[in-house]
């Protein structure tokens, strides 16, 4: 059972890599057979969405709603799962130089151990998973990858031409709520906190919506204007939730909390005792910027600094027409890594 997540991960990785290679080869062809004449080239539906749910989602025991949705709407479940994976990666990037960095949180659809506790870190994972699932379904809906999306059901192509895909956002939020909310008669404090944080994640999607408008008329005049809402980038949503995570509140029975705030039940464990920090990148510096605090992150074990020289292109200028002329610049970087014995889990 322990190897199951890695197997699925390798399968999706291999399939995605193969898919990317096919897409790159396809994009080189000036015209694509079957594409509508005059239409913009659109990324086709990923193969992973056509195959149905993998076995770990199909037989999930923690979230029974996922089992049911896999039989009726597999593309939606897979989009949500991939969205959660994307969100966890963004979280790891965002908290790269903090002690806890989202790296071993695990996907919410696999019922990881972290989500059985009421830590502050659990609140972020709940909210981020909920938001990422909604974002993933909304993005797949906007791309036309989900057949049961509201755009295709109601207006067909007309919806795309005049109003964009406004319903994708609501569809994503609805899918996230139905997929990730546990059902059952158990009514514990932990379950209450979980529901609150899941809702906070969905509200984060709503709070960060972007309004897009388009003008119609002769020569683009605004004789008629059409506006719709769409989701922000997942990086922006992750930043929003990380700010909420920094201001999360301890929940007690008599506390009053907003629906957009994150709440937790117990203090966080000491990261220095929970796992080894050996081999972690604790700081990063170039000639103009510095990030990270190694003394705090390495738990006092010390760190080593590696100097890197990177060639980058800079001072690019446009030459008519149409070339970019850039200079070759040398950029110095100093990467600090924590000392200590590397953990065994990194060895395959």
């Amino acid at each position: 059972m322990r190897a199951a997540p890695f197997d699925f991960f390798f399968q999706s990785t291999a399939l995605s890599t193969f898919f990317i290679l096919c897409s790159l080869a396809t994009n080189e062809i000036p015209t694509i057979s079957g594409a509508p004449a005059g239409k913009i080239v659109q990324p086709p539906k990923p193969n992973i969405l056509k195959q149905g749910c993998p076995s770990d989602l199909l037989h999930s025991r923690a979230l029974r709603s996922i089992q049911l949705a896999c039989r009726t709407h597999p593309a939606t479940v897979i989009s949500a799962f991939e969205g959660v994976q994307e969100g966890l990666q963004n979280c790891a990037n965002r908290l790269r130089f903090q002690q806890w960095d989202c790296s071993e949180a695990g996907n919410i659809m696999h019922d990881p151990p972290l989500l059985r506790q009421g830590f502050r870190e659990s609140s972020l994972i709940w909210a981020l998973s909920s938001a990422s699932a909604a974002w993933g379904v909304a993005t797949a809906c906007a791309q036309g990858w989900i057949d049961d999306c509201a755009c295709n059901n109601q207006m067909g192509q007309n919806e795309y031409e005049f109003g964009g895909c406004t319903h994708g956002v609501q569809h994503g939020i609805t899918a996230s709520r139905k997929l990730l909310t546990k059902v059952g008669a158990v009514n514990t404090l932990l379950r209450k906190v979980e529901k609150h944080n899941l809702k906070a994640g969905r509200l984060a999607i709503k709070k960060t919506l972007i309004s897009s408008c388009k003008c119609h008329g002769v020569s683009g005049s605004c004789q008629q204007k059409t506006c719709w809402k769409r989701t922000a980038t997942l990086e922006h949503i992750t930043d929003y939730l990380v700010e909420k995570y920094a201001r999360a509140k301890l929940y007690t029975d008599d506390s009053v909390v907003k629906t957009t705030d994150l709440i937790y039940l117990e203090a966080s464990p000491d990261v220095c005792k929970a796992k080894s920090v050996a081999g972690r990148v604790c700081a990063w510096r170039n000639e103009t910027h510095t990030q990270g605090d190694c003394d705090r992150l390495c738990c006092g074990n010390g760190f080593s600094i590696r100097h890197e020289v990177v060639r980058v292109k800079c001072d690019c200028e446009f030459v008519w027409c149409c070339n970019l002329v850039c200079k070759d610049c040398i950029q110095h970087r100093w990467i600090s890594t924590c000392n200590g014995t590397p953990p065994k889990s990194l060895i395959f």
């Binding site: 990785t13 995605s16 890599t17 992973i48 991939e82 994307e86 993933g136 993005t139 081999g279």
Partner: peptide, 24 residues
């Protein structure tokens, strides 16, 4: 040497994983 090779093997799949890369 084995450790760095393991790290490389671990990180390469992460960079090419998401189905949303083409859309976003």
């Amino acid at each position: 040497m084995m450790h760095s090779l393991g790290i490389i093997l671990l990180f390469i799949p992460l960079a090419t994983g998401s189905i949303f890369d083409q859309a976003v």
